[in-house]
Amino acid sequence: MSEFLSPKDLPAALAARAAHPDYIPVAGGTDYMVASKDRLPPPGIINLFGLGALTGVTDLDGGGVRIGACTTYATLLGDARIANTFPLLRDACREVGASQIQARGTLGGNIATSSPVGDSLPPLLALDAVICVASSAGERRVAYEDFLVGYRKIDLAADELIVAIELPAPHVGAMQHWRKVGTRRAQSISKVMMAAVAHLDDGRIADIRIALGAVADRTVRARATEDALRGSAPSEEAAKRAREALRGEITPIDDLRSTAEYRLGVAENLVRRFVLSL
């Protein structure tokens, strides 16, 4: 008999997680339930969807936001703070699956699955997200880049849950840019994604953060590319240097959906286009 637990609050959820490390925490179910028709039942499910403490967007001091892990894409798409302050995240949410997936899929769920093609992940990386993780012992905060430890692997212990994602306020005047290149225009799996944030100072790129999806075993920051651009005026020449740096730091693969050559070429083109748009 497979148990289905719907804890009433966060302490209950954490207690259930500690008591049943083999149970599957499920938020919207849009990853977990795929192709589950004739699958053997799981030992148990800890249902987190709709849990108040894990849902919704709240303001942080200094202009950032805290997003409950079980907040759906649909909720984020309807949130004015996200639209105004983090259009990058809003644009990415809009391209996750389609309406049905957006109604159930959650930001925390995407982080937990940690697929290299997770659509909301590059924006979180480019926006310097901090992941808030809790267990019955307390809460800890981890920079998202450190939270990603391998192919579909995250820094989460068997008694922990992802509870929130914090996004610091972006630099005033920073440009945010999102581009998903998928197999088709909607309801698609990504082939290349780029989330980029940059601001200029006196005509030069003062800071730039570029996160790429579907080009490595996990979502990655293109740090060498960023370094090649920092301090430069946005020009074809700077873009050329950025492309070279990018070629040196990512090694995408061939799979059923696309080719390594395509992923690399498109990532280079997207970086160039972003640089020229600054």
């Binding site: 192709a35 389609a98 197999t183 088709r184 225009r185 909607a186 698609s188 799996i189 059923l256």
Partner: peptide
């Protein structure tokens, strides 16, 4: 090899 609707794709409303 692509025996699922997620990778054996057909056009959507948006395409």
């Amino acid at each position: 090899a692509n025996d699922r609707m997620t990778n054996c794709i057909v056009p959507t409303f948006s395409d």
